[in-house]
Amino acid sequence: MDSSVIEDLVLRVKKSDQKAFNTLFEVLCEPMYSYACSILMNDSLAQDIVQEIWIDYWQKRQDLDVKFLKSYLYKSIRNRCYNHLRDQKFNKIQLEVANSVSIDSEVDQSYDVIELATKINSVVSNLPKRCQLIFRLSRVNNINNKEIANKLDISQRSVENQISFALRQLRKELAVAKTLFSFL
Results as ranks from 00 to 15, higher is better:
D2Q: 14
V5M: 14
E7N: 13
D8Y: 14
V10Y: 02
V10L: 08
K14R: 13
K14S: 08
S16K: 13
S16L: 01
Q18T: 07
N22H: 08
T23G: 09
L24Q: 06
V27W: 07
L28D: 09
E30C: 08
E30V: 11
Y35S: 00
Y35A: 12
C37I: 07
C37G: 03
L40N: 03
L40T: 04
M41L: 15
D43W: 01
D43I: 10
S44R: 12
L45V: 12
L45D: 02
A46P: 03
A46Q: 05
Q47K: 14
I49W: 06
V50Y: 02
V50S: 00
Q51L: 14
Q51T: 14
E52N: 10
I53T: 04
I53N: 04
I53Y: 08
W54E: 07
W54M: 14
W54V: 03
I55G: 04
I55Q: 11
Y57F: 15
Q62Y: 05
L64A: 12
D65C: 10
K67P: 09
L69Y: 03
L69T: 03
K70H: 10
Y72Q: 01
L73Q: 01
K75E: 06
S76D: 05
S76W: 00
I77F: 02
R78K: 08
N79I: 08
N79L: 11
